[in-house]
Simulated assay, not measured.
Amino acid sequence: MHRDQSPLRARSAPELVPSLFLDLDQMLDEFTRLPMRAKFSFDPDMPAVITVEFLAERGPSLNWRIGRGLLHLGLSAMSGSGDVRMWPTLPGERPSSWLLLESQEVEALFEVPTAQLAEWLDATYRITSSEAEMDGLDWDDFLMELLDGPGTHSE
């Protein structure tokens, strides 16, 4: 048996929790919705963070890294502060939440369907619980990247 065919080889997270593609609406104003697709990705090496790629029909996609706990809580209650906030919409035909993203360059409000997102987030928590999501985090590298930005480590 070739060593890469070992039955003991661990499955990768994409096999365990494939990326979730969701159709959501960006609210351009009070009455205008722009349908778009978003890809939610989970990395077991950084389980506290979900990467959301907003897939534009034309032009480049936009990536945001959002706390998994913020998304999970935002399905049922107000969650987050600052650049990222999420909260449930009023009850209606289809359960959804508002996701607000703000930065110096962009401000965007999205209506996100919650049923599929909740199921997908639950699958990520089965891989890494909320209690264990900070285990193994290299705090020195994390703080250096946070303070200096990626790729600008000073010695």
Rank of each mutant, 00 (worst) to 15 (best):
N63M: 13
E30I: 04
P44T: 10
M27R: 06
V112I: 15
D25T: 03
I50V: 15
L146K: 08
Y125H: 10
P35E: 07
F40E: 06
T124L: 07
R37W: 05
P150V: 13
E93W: 00
E133F: 05
L55H: 08
E119S: 07
A118S: 03
R58N: 14
V49I: 15
L16A: 02
R85K: 13
I66P: 02
R37Q: 13
T114R: 00
D45L: 10
L143D: 11
T124D: 10
R68V: 12
S41H: 00
L22R: 06
P44N: 13
V49M: 14
E53A: 01
G92M: 04
A108T: 08
R94C: 03
A118C: 02
N63F: 09
S96N: 04
P113A: 00
G136I: 13
L137K: 09
L70I: 13
E133I: 12
A118R: 02
L70Y: 01
G136N: 12
E145L: 07
R126S: 14
D29A: 00
E107V: 08
R85F: 01
G74R: 02
V106T: 14
R11I: 09
P44G: 01
A38C: 09
L143G: 02
L62R: 11
R37T: 15
L34C: 05
Q104C: 06
L99P: 08
E57L: 09
L137E: 13
M36R: 05
E57S: 11
H153N: 05
M134Y: 09
S79D: 06
R68S: 10
E30T: 12
L90H: 03
E133S: 08
W139G: 01
E133K: 07
P47G: 03
W98K: 06
V84I: 15
R3I: 15
M1A: 04
V106G: 01
M134H: 14
A56F: 05
